[in-house]
């Protein structure tokens, strides 16, 4: 590991538990690099996760770290941020953790526009429990609980976040890593609720079940189906089918929750 990054890791815990080629490691590295590029104060960062392979990430990171219950990372994070708005709060979550069991907390954290950066390690499967379909598993894909092909339609997390009220929304992939790091930097600098949908790979379960081949083949697949939002504008609906749109979808400056609450405190004390 590069020397200047070592302080961000609990290096004695490495190598991590993730499978060979699992992109959770790439994403965790991207988060650390974004933090380092911005030179954020390490002693002011709190990283919260739920349950899943992805949610193991904070255990390797040398910050205030909290590994909560399945789906509830944003609920805990909301308490932390409101209690201590000086902390930069980052939620690392899986697609199942965030969009299935945690879906309610996700839309409400977005609605409040509370200053939390949420990065979804979106491998379109439940990795930790060995390959059941998630709300991000594409229709038609296979999973251990979809042996005949998945009939559920999947979410578009970015659209979901935006319509729920998130004020920074972007998608990147583990293949397009320099861009993804830039996106995470923007999300971390944004005041308000920011979402990064980080498209990633689970070679062990999604990959095998869908006969996608090696981690390399899965990365190639992501590379080949991704298109920047700008180029997508010129394409027809048919041409866009099965494609992953990447880039920044939405950015807005809007009142942030903990700042609004500070005003509540002021108001309540008026005339005292």
């Amino acid at each position: 590991m590069r020397k200047e990054l070592e302080k961000y890791f609990r290096t004695e815990k490495l190598p991590h538990i993730w499978c060979p080629g699992c992109s959770h490691g790439i994403l965790t590295g991207a988060v650390v690099r974004a933090i380092d590029n911005l030179k954020l104060d390490q002693k002011k960062i709190c990283i919260v996760s739920g349950i899943g392979c992805s949610s193991r990430a904070p255990g390797y990171l040398n910050f205030y770290t909290l590994h909560t219950t399945h789906g509830r990372a944003l609920a805990f994070a909301t308490g932390i941020k409101l209690a201590n708005p000086d902390l930069k709060v980052i939620v690392l979550t899986g697609d199942g953790d965030c969009a299935a069991i945690g879906g309610n907390h996700f839309i409400h954290a977005a609605r409040r526009n509370i200053d939390i950066t949420t990065i979804v390690f979106n491998n379109s499967i439940y990795g930790m429990t060995s390959g059941q379909y998630s709300p991000m598993t594409p229709k038609g894909s296979y999973a251990t609980t979809a042996p005949y092909g998945n009939i559920d339609r999947n979410f578009d997390l970015c659209k979901l976040a935006q319509s729920a009220g998130a004020t920074y929304v972007a998608r990147g992939t583990v293949y397009h890593i320099p861009q993804l790091i830039k996106i995470i930097e923007k999300a971390l600098q944004h005041k308000g609720f920011s979402l990064v949908d980080a498209v990633s790979i689970c070679p062990t379960y999604f990959g095998r079940k869908n006969k996608m081949g090696s981690p390399v083949k899965m990365m190639e697949f992501i590379r080949d189906v991704s298109i920047p939002i700008k180029s997508a504008e010129k394409l027809s609906k048919e041409e866009l089918a099965g494609k992953i749109l990447i880039g920044e979808f939405y950015e807005e400056q809007a009142p942030e929750y903990t700042e609004e609450y500070a005003k509540v405190i002021e108001k309540s004390q008026e005339g005292d």
Binding site: M1, R2, L14, H16, P20, G25, G29, R33
Partner: peptide, 15 residues
């Protein structure tokens, strides 16, 4: 440095 950034296990250092 793409190799370094994409290595899931932080095993590569270019420099």
């Amino acid at each position: 440095k793409l190799c370094e950034l994409r290595c899931p296990d932080y095993a590569i250092v270019v420099g």
